[in-house]
């Protein structure tokens, strides 16, 4: 139940982020969710897209360093305390979260959380036990 997330190296120069998104736009790739992590002199753009394979190809062709990472997507209720709820079950099970980002959907009252954890299988199992809904890849890509 993992989702392919693309990570793209972004130099710390004006216009670099625009370039990356332009490449995706021209290839008709839709962005579902994104997050930018920045370090001293570069950034890593993490994106969930409609077509990860195509996106990865076009970005590589355009000379970008790209890597695919398996992440989890969890569907939660868009209300106070629900993110805390899923983080608590992970914490109690001793699973650490590398990073996460969240987005709300067109469907009212619902939000998605993209999670990068050290052990996807274990986290998935914990979510299942706690009746927390993980979202299938296609469901996210086709949002």
């Amino acid at each position: 139940m993992t989702i392919d997330q693309l990570s793209v190296f972004v130099e710390n120069e004006p216009g670099r982020l625009a370039e990356v998104t332009e490449v995706l736009g021209k290839a008709d790739v839709d962005l579902r969710a994104m997050s930018l992590a920045d370090a001293r002199d570069f950034g890593v753009l993490r994106v969930i897209v409609s077509d990860p394979r195509r996106a990865s190809e076009v970005l590589k062709d355009a000379g970008h360093a790209v890597t695919v990472t398996q992440v989890l997507a969890v569907s939660i209720e868009d209300k106070p305390g629900s993110l805390a709820g899923i983080l608590r079950v992970l914490a109690d099970a001793g699973v650490s979260v590398e990073y996460l980002y969240a987005f709300i959907t067109r469907e009212k009252g619902n939000a998605y959380v993209i999670l990068r954890v050290e052990d996807n299988a274990r986290a998935t199992e914990i979510f299942r036990r706690h009746d927390i809904k993980t979202v299938a890849a296609n469901e996210i890509y086709d949002l």
Binding site: F9, R40, F42, G43, V44, A65, V66, T67
Partner: peptide, 18 residues
Amino acid sequence: EMTPEMFSDEVRELSERE
């Protein structure tokens, strides 16, 4: 120059390499 082998999703790891 970054290469595909060098690149990592983890910012911390990249910073460490730098």
